[in-house]
Structure formats: C-alpha cells, structure tokens
Write a protein that binds this DNA or RNA. Structure first.
Lengths: 360, 360
DNA sequence: CCTGGCACTCTGCCTGCCGGAGTGCCAGAT
DNA sequence: ATCTGGCACTCCGGCAGGCAGAGTGCCAGG
C-alpha cells in the first residue's frame, strides 16, 4: 500500500478516518504519543502498566487498556502476540508525525557546530561529503545527499582545453559548483583561434543560462563559423549536450551504513534488502525524487514505494542555494525512529548546506 | 598478530615453520586443501568421514583423522568444540593460498564481458564506478577501488577561469583523468592579460611533470611577474600547492556492502566493525596502502592491522595505465572466501582497468 | 604405516514446565 | 457515563532433561 506522501510543514489537519463512534479524544492521543515515545526508546512492546508509570497520565492502567483497545481497533497500534504490549503501526506513526510531534529544533551549540563543520569544505565534493557524514552522525542513521541537480543549475563557465591537436577537453562549471568534464575527439586538428572563438561564443550565449535551455541557445552555433570548422563545432556541441542530458549524472553520496546494525534483533532479514536498496542509485534517486520540493517529507514503512524499504522510514527535504531547491537530502532509518529529532536534524542540515552553497 | 603481507605472484616457497618432526607430506597437504575447499563451500566444520566421501583421498577416515590431529597440532586447523569437525585457521588459509591454490583465471567470455562493461565508461568517475560494481559482482564481496593517486600522476593541464573580477577558478587536470578544482580569492582584481600570462607560464613550467615536483618547479614563479601582480600569483600558487598536498584527496569508492549479509550466522557482531571500517576512508586507504605495488597481496584475518577486520581477508593489487601502478583496488570478504576465484577476478579487473585508463 | 572398531564427548533439538507480563472483561465506585 | 480494581486467561521466555547424531581419540591388529 502506497500512500500519498504528506508534507508536515506546516502541520496540516489530519483527515479523521474513524469509521464511527466517539471522538478520538485528547487522552487517547496522549496514550498513542506515549506508546510511540516509549517504544522508540525501549524497542519493546509497551504495556498499560509501564505506560502509566512512566508518563503521568492521571488514570489507571485499566483505563489505558480500554484506550489501547480502541486505538488497536482503529489500526494505530498492534499486538505482536496476545498478551504482549502494543507497538505502533505505520498508521500510528503517521498520526504521531502529523499531529502529535513537534519538530525538535537544534540547540544553538549544535547549530554552531554544524555550521562550523560545513564551512571547512574546500569544494563541492567536500561539501557533500561533509554533509552526509554530519547528517549520519547527528541522526545515527543512514544519510543520503544528492548532488545539486544539473537540470536546476545554470552555466557559470565552459572551458575548452587542448590536449592533443585533435583532442579537446570540455569542462562545464555550474553555479552550484559542479564540474563535469568530457574528452572530445574532433574530426581533425583544431586551430588555436578557432578554439578561442568557440570558447568565447559558448560562454557568451550559454553563460548564466539554466542547463536545460543550453541546447536551444546553442542550436544554431555552427552557422556562426566557417564551413570548414563546422564539423568540429558540431562535435563539441554534441558532447556538451550529451553531458547535459546525462541524467546518470544525478549523483548521490551516502554515509552511516554502520548504523544499520542498530536496526533490530531480527536484522539479517531486515538489513539485507535495505543494503541492496542503498546500493542502487536509481532507487535512492527515486526515493528522494518523491520529496516535495521545499517542505519536509516523511515516508513511513509501507508508504515507501520500494519494497525493500517497507520497514524503514525516510525523512527528506530539498535544499538550495537560494529560495529554490537544487537537490534533496534525507535519512533512512527504522520506522521505529525518533521522528522529532531526526526531522530537526534534517531540516537544520538542509538549511545550512543551502547557505554554504549560496556563499561559494 | 600482524604478519608481513606476502606477495603470491609469482608463488614463493613458503617458510617451513614446523617445530620439529616428520615432513609435511603430500597427503597431509591434500587433506588441508580439501578441508579449506569444503569449509568454504559448506560453511560448516568438516569431519573426517565427509572428507573421504567427497574427495577421493584413497585412505580411510581414521587415517585422515591422524593427519588432522597433526595439522591441528601445527596450528593449521582447529576444532570449534570437541567432537565437531575442523575449520581452517588463519595460518591454514595462509598455507593454502601460498602453496595449495592456483589463481583461477577468468574464462574468455568473462574477460570479454569485463572489457566490454568497462569500455562503456565516459569519464574517470564512471570508470571507477563501473570497476567497483563489477568487482563486487564478480566476487560477490565488498569491492574497493582507489582513484588514481595524485602523487603518481603528472600534470596534463592547468586552467584558470575568471568567475568575478577577484575570483578565479583553478582547474587541475592530470594524465590519469582526475580533475581537481578550487576557487581562489585573489587580493585584488585580476587583469585578463595577467591571467593569460599566468596560465601560459604555469603550463609551460608544470605541464607533464609529476605532481610532487610541481611546487619545486613553480617556486620562483612570482619573480617572473611585475611586483604589482605578485600577490595574485602567490595566492594562486598557494591554492595550487594546497590542492597537490591534500592527501585527503586520495579518494576511494566502494560497492557490494549488501554482500556482507552473506558473512555468517553470528553476524551482527561480525558485520558491525566491518561496516565501520568501510566508512572510514582512512582505514581503507591504509589497507590498500599496504599492498605491494605490482604483486597481488592477500591479507588473512589477523594479518590485517585494523582490528575490526580481524575476521576478514583482503585481496588487493595495484593497477596502472602503463607498467607502473597509479592506485590500488581490492576486495574484502570473510576469511572463509574462495581465494582462487577472488584472486582471479581481482587480477583480471585490475589488468583491464589499467588498459582502459591507458587508452583514454 | 594404515585400518576397523569402540568408547567418549559434545552439540542441537525437542519436550515439558513454570513464572512473569500483559490483556479483556465485569462489577462496583464516583 | 466514566473510571477503577479484581480476576481469569493467554502467551512468551527461560530452564532442565533426554535423546539422536556426528565426530573424535585411541588401540590393537593387518
């Protein structure tokens, strides 16, 4: 079952899905919240007695049991076996995230540390590398960061470097700091002046433009050259367009896989499909791709389209240098995760990466 | 205990470490070989009866038991418990690798497939990415590939690109296809002609040189410029030297972590330190660093310096575009691995990456 | 030097048993 | 109408005992 991912920022009213009956009153919600919190903490099914002891609910275990029965009836919690405590279902976590949890903001020392750590980066690779590591460490989960997307970037500069008489290296530099390079085999020797001319024209016409617009802007460039030079120009253009089109070049970096060992007791079974998913860039990209651009997205258990991740939750958000997002980042952890903390960390890191990127 | 890593290509006579007594005769070696092969296949301690059934040793189980007792005495095999079969020790695997196993060559369809797969790569990142994936798939283990080392590369080209009046992007391209870029904040606006002059001089003096020699070659470059320009030149040089020195930039890529799940039954304990090790680039780099340059190195269990990898073996080898190696690659798997097959795959992949790199 | 036989040991598995934790329900209290 | 205490019930988890199987070490004989 795949639900529509829901944004949680700002909090929206949740749809009341109860079939019939009395309102889902405050105490009942408090019980659910308490169950989620305890279960996340202890990793063990939580019973009525333990619950009243640890949270001051002001009622007796028997009452809590009634509430629990109701919550189970409505599908928010479930019993692993008769006479065991309750654990939240995906639907229960959903409600928790939508209505019961506040994103936990980072403390200001934490913010300072984040900012400081990210500021040490020397280039884009380094920014991304530091970001994943940081995110993995903060959340103690698996972190994923997408490189700034080529399609949302603009051309900062195009450089042509002569390697041999007929070989030219094409270097594309974007405003987000990405550098792509390709070697172009030209049909014949390329003259210095032609190269300089081509370089100048490329930058004049394409500089500052969003990458997807570049092919249109350069379409008729060969016409601006002597017929003898046109094959060379066309070859270079072809390589350039190829580089732009390459959606293979949606790159991703991840860190914190060692945190998978904290997944659960039964974990050979749990961990294998997750590791497999993490190896597949395509899966990760689709995962992040489903993230709404600006708002944070939480996808819980079966809400994930990819089967291997059915027992994990994904918290993701876009980040960008300005107001618009150029890529996504997020973390992947067990459904039984600390949602408020994780969301706080993800949001903070995204914000600071954006800032760093804007500065460079 | 950390042994000196030993090369296995060409096979060297192993030092006979027996304390005293009768020669380690052929049958006894055959028994050890059979034990290793069976254990690798079944993952279960192997007993005398099963051994004679599956390998035609031409003797009775009782005789094999005597041999086993002797092998155990000398530390090549061990019993998990009384009345269980035997499993090889690290020392047993060592002997197996040194004297009993032949590197298993790839079949020619396999070679073709490797070559074909690697030839599709469009740039260095892609070559490395394809190589790790291939290696992981062939060996069904965790694969590690180091990017061509900066220190062993030569300068192909240095490019300067003006971003803003006082900001210049420095791009360094090596003969192995690596591209490093840094943004340089100059003390003041930089003129076009100065930039062109600097670019020309940089390439004239540094082009073709091994990276470690570059600082020496450029040391007195500022003297070749007008006093007014020297601060700019120095700033650019400083950034360039920093880029060269950065041994952080020894990058690594890995794949196949999902194969860790095939490690063993007890594996939460085994897998955690391994995952941690894999996250630490430094550890991986040291690991590969201990590889002899040309010859293949096999480090078994406790022979690995890093504790977390005490129950794993590492098979690694250098690869290079010409006759000298520019970086290393290898695989990490349980000590209980198929050494001949793994070594064959590692050797073949290294050879082909070298070729691909030489061609581009 | 190899082999068959024998006694011994240890694991793995199944069984039965018991305590503990937790539930559901009901009747009574507020 | 809602909460609460009490009670019977269920199920898991751990522990002890018993049993079969696999494998060994050793010894005497070929």
């Amino acid at each position: 079952m795949v639900d529509e991912p829901r944004s949680v920022e700002p909090a929206r009213a949740v749809v009341d899905t109860r079939p019939v009956g009395r309102p889902l009153d405050d105490r009942r919600l408090a019980v659910l919240r308490a169950i989620v919190q305890d279960y996340v903490g202890t990793e063990e099914p939580v019973g009525s007695k333990a619950l009243v002891e640890r949270h001051s609910l002001g009622v007796s275990p028997a009452t809590v049991r009634n509430d629990m029965a109701a919550l189970e009836e409505e599908g928010f919690i479930q019993q692993p076996h008769t006479s065991a405590g309750r654990i939240p279902t995906d639907k229960g976590y959903r409600l928790f995230v939508d209505r019961l949890a506040e994103v936990k903001p980072m403390t200001s020392p934490e913010r300072r540390a984040i900012r400081h750590f990210l500021e040490g980066a020397v280039d884009l690779d380094d920014v991304v590398a530091r970001t994943v590591r940081l995110l993995a460490q903060l959340t103690r989960q698996v972190a994923v960061v997408q490189y700034p997307s080529l399609t949302r970037s603009t051309v900062r500069h195009i450089e042509l470097v002569q390697l041999t008489p007929a070989k030219v290296m094409l270097v594309l530099i974007t405003n987000t700091g990405r550098v792509e390079q390709r070697i172009v085999d030209c049909p014949g020797a390329v003259g210095d002046t032609v190269l300089a001319d081509l370089r100048a024209k490329l930058n004049a016409r394409a500089g500052g433009r969003p990458l997807p617009e570049v092919p249109v802007a350069l379409e008729d460039l060969p016409a601006a050259f002597e017929p003898a030079e046109r094959p060379t120009v066309s070859t270079v253009l072809a390589t350039l367009f190829e580089t732009l089109a390459e959606q293979n070049e949606e790159r991703i970096m991840l860190a914190g896989t060692a945190n998978l060992t904290r997944f659960g007791h039964d974990f050979p079974l749990t961990i294998q499909p997750v590791l497999e998913a993490l190896e597949e860039q395509v899966v990760l990209l689709r995962l992040l791709g489903e993230t709404a651009d600006a708002a944070m997205t939480v996808r819980i258990g079966h809400e994930n389209a990819y089967e291997g991740l059915n027992s994990t939750s994904v918290v993701s958000v876009g980040y960008g240098s300005g107001d618009q997002s150029v890529a996504k980042l997020g973390v992947i952890g067990p459904t039984r995760m600390d949602y408020p903390g994780t969301m706080g960390a993800v949001r903070a890191v995204a914000r600071y990466v954006g800032q760093i990127l804007a500065e460079s």
